[in-house]
């Protein structure tokens, strides 16, 4: 049985690729799927920290491709989900330490064991990005409702299409419904119209994300506490083939609206 490899990318940095990877991986594992996360951001690794696994790293992806250890030795089992694994990036090397071909080999090996292999891509469109997408069957683009992020997402979509990715899908992260309603933030329709690709999900801005990152605990572990956690859970279920309507973003009540207008909230 061969699993599916999905690269999570964005072009622009800071839009939430790593948070998305950590949460989707954890959420898929909670659906009883075997999942491996690969941190392809060599030299600037972060996925281990977001997952709270940084103190377990002995070997990394560069050790694997250089033959210093076997692939299984470098895989770190998640401390909460025993069907979730992390292949960490090297911190003391750079993007050239792995070639696209090596990455492809690695991903296809992992696909034999896993239902899903999620690759966290580095920002940018250089070698690190090229490594991250090689071996992936599918691509998810993360963007935020900002001009710069959407522009970069568009560039990435173009590059992915050239590389033969059939239907990249987009996650719109950090949307603030209050700002959308005031007309101070692009809404989902605006962005989908511009990017012209399928929308996989929308994640609201949520300060709980900061807290969960501080703790090294993906927010999907406690979805009841956060809308972002619920959103990531829904996206994971969609990836897993479930037909799930988009989460309705909170509609402002009339009272709230008046409060805001008179400056009380």
């Amino acid at each position: 049985m061969a699993g599916k490899a999905i690269v999570i990318t964005s072009g622009k940095g800071g839009v939430g690729k790593t948070t998305t990877t950590a949460n989707l991986g954890t959420a898929l594992a909670m659906l009883d799927r075997r999942v491996c996360l690969i941190d392809a951001d060599i030299g600037l690794r972060n996925l281990d920290v977001v997952m709270g696994l940084e103190n377990r790293i002995v070997y990394d992806i560069v050790d694997v491709v250089e033959g210093n250890c076997r692939l299984e030795q470098a895989l770190i089992r998640d401390k909460r989900q025993n069907n979730l694994f992390l292949l960490p990036a090297a911190q003391t090397r750079d993007k050239t330490a792995v070639t696209p071909y090596q990455m492809q080999e690695l991903v296809s090996k992992l696909k034999e064991e896993m239902d899903y292999v999620l690759v966290d891509s580095p920002a940018g469109i250089e070698q690190g990005f090229k490594n991250a997408i090689s071996g992936a069957d599918q691509a998810i683009i993360v963007t935020t409702p900002e001009v710069s992020a959407v522009r970069d997402a568009d560039r990435i979509i173009g590059l992915l299409e050239t590389e033969g990715f059939k239907e990249p899908e987009v996650i719109i992260n950090r949307i603030r419904q209050d700002m959308v309603q005031k007309g101070d933030m692009m809404d989902i329709d605006d962005m989908i119209e511009i990017l012209a690709i399928k929308l996989l999900g929308v994640v609201p801005e949520d300060e709980n994300i900061v807290i969960s990152t501080n703790r090294g605990e993906p927010i999907v572990l406690k979805p009841e506490k956060s809308r972002a956690g619920q959103a990531f859970n829904n996206i994971a279920r969609r990836i897993d083939g479930e037909e799930l309507p988009l989460m309705s973003l909170e509609k402002d009540t009339l009272l709230k609206k008046i409060k805001r207008i008179v400056g009380l909230s």
């Binding site: 709270g52 940084e54 103190n55 377990r56 790293i57 002995v58 401390k79």
Partner: peptide, 15 residues
């Protein structure tokens, strides 16, 4: 430390 290694023994800080 994130991790301490002495000789061939590894220990990590408690979670």
């Amino acid at each position: 430390p994130t991790q301490l290694r002495i000789g061939n023994i590894i220990s990590r800080s408690p979670d």
